[in-house]
């Protein structure tokens, strides 16, 4: 190929490439690279948006290590992620398997996808209303079954699980469709031979479907976990971090530091910590992903 005289278009390729890339490079430079560098710089400064940033060395980081609120935010986020991803993945897996074996209906899939298409703010408002202690439908339902009406978002015990389950509601359908798409890649003959061998549905799921889904499942877990870590909207609408900080997740903590207390430098340092944590998480998960390539090869 290279020994042939290059056509004129090939020679101009490099110049053409830069022209094609120009808008994206401008956008990337201005709104990704520059702010990333700036955020990193801020994390070493005292900065309130009003005066110029003032270099303070590693003071923000030192404070962060001793900041009980910061550790609380991490703990809350971790708990949230476990509750949310745990319930969501399990439910989605069951739903995907059921769809896979029962129906190819686009209508069913479309309905399951609706909550994912709706803004999180709407989801938050909707559940705030459904779970309203006086008039909410869910509480009506619970009282009519003899239970006690509870202000779930205002309860220190229930607030975090409630937020986690609300987002499980919002994202299970989407996750199920991703897993379902993965299941469709499993060759049909495996099911036929499983049926010939007399394996029941449950057995087939655990010996055929699940092992072959592993790489897809791992990838879906990585992406949904990254998303879950960044929960903000639902908390901002329903609990605003309360009651007594039980739902103050890391995103909300950073947001408050930056835009309520105007401690931009400190917020940036917490942001750097978040980048590091997510990076480590992704690294570990990708390692596990590599170790678990599909049995189909």
């Amino acid at each position: 190929m290279d020994s042939r005289p290059r056509p004129p278009a090939q020679r101009g390729a490099a110049r053409a490439a830069w022209l094609f890339l120009l808008p994206v490079l401008v956008g990337f430079g201005l709104f990704y690279l520059y702010p990333a560098a700036r955020g990193l710089w801020w994390s070493f400064t005292d900065y309130s948006l009003l005066a110029e940033p003032e270099f303070t060395g590693t003071q923000n980081y030192a404070e962060l290590v001793g900041d009980a609120q910061f550790w609380n935010a991490l703990k809350v986020t971790a708990l949230y992620v476990v509750l949310n991803i745990g319930s969501q993945t399990l439910l989605a897996l069951v739903l995907a398997a059921l769809m896979h074996r029962l129906t190819r209906s686009v209508m069913v899939r479309a309905m399951l996808l609706v909550p994912w298409l709706v803004p999180n703010v709407t989801v938050g408002l909707l559940w705030l209303w459904l779970l309203d202690a006086d008039l909410g439908f869910v509480n009506h339902l619970i009282s009519s079954l003899g239970g006690e009406s509870t202000a779930y978002f205002a309860s220190p015990t229930w607030a975090l699980p409630t937020v986690a389950l609300v987002n499980t509601w919002a994202y299970t359908g989407y996750t199920a469709l991703l897993l379902y798409a993965g299941m469709l890649q499993t060759p049909g003959y495996l099911y036929e031979s499983a049926a010939i061998d007399g394996a029941g549905e449950t057995r087939t799921f655990f010996t055929v479907t699940l092992p072959l889904l592993r790489p897809v499942l791992a990838l879906v877990l990585v992406t949904s976990m990254i998303g879950s870590f960044q929960i903000f909207d639902t908390v901002a609408v329903t609990t605003e971090g309360g009651p007594v900080n039980v739902t103050k997740v890391i995103y909300f903590y950073i947001y408050q530091k930056a835009f309520h207390q105007f401690e931009m430098g400190y917020a940036a340092a917490a942001g750097v910590a978040l980048v590091a944590i997510l990076g480590a998480l992704v690294y570990v998960q990708l390692r596990l992903l590599k170790a678990s390539s599909s049995d189909l090869g």
């Binding site: 990704y32 702010p35 990333a36 700036r38 801020w42 870590f229 931009m264 940036a268 980048v275 992704v282």
Partner: peptide, 10 residues
């Protein structure tokens, strides 16, 4: 890999 809130502040 960079969480949006990090670039959102600047």
């Amino acid at each position: 890999m960079v969480p949006p809130i990090f670039t959102l502040l600047p």
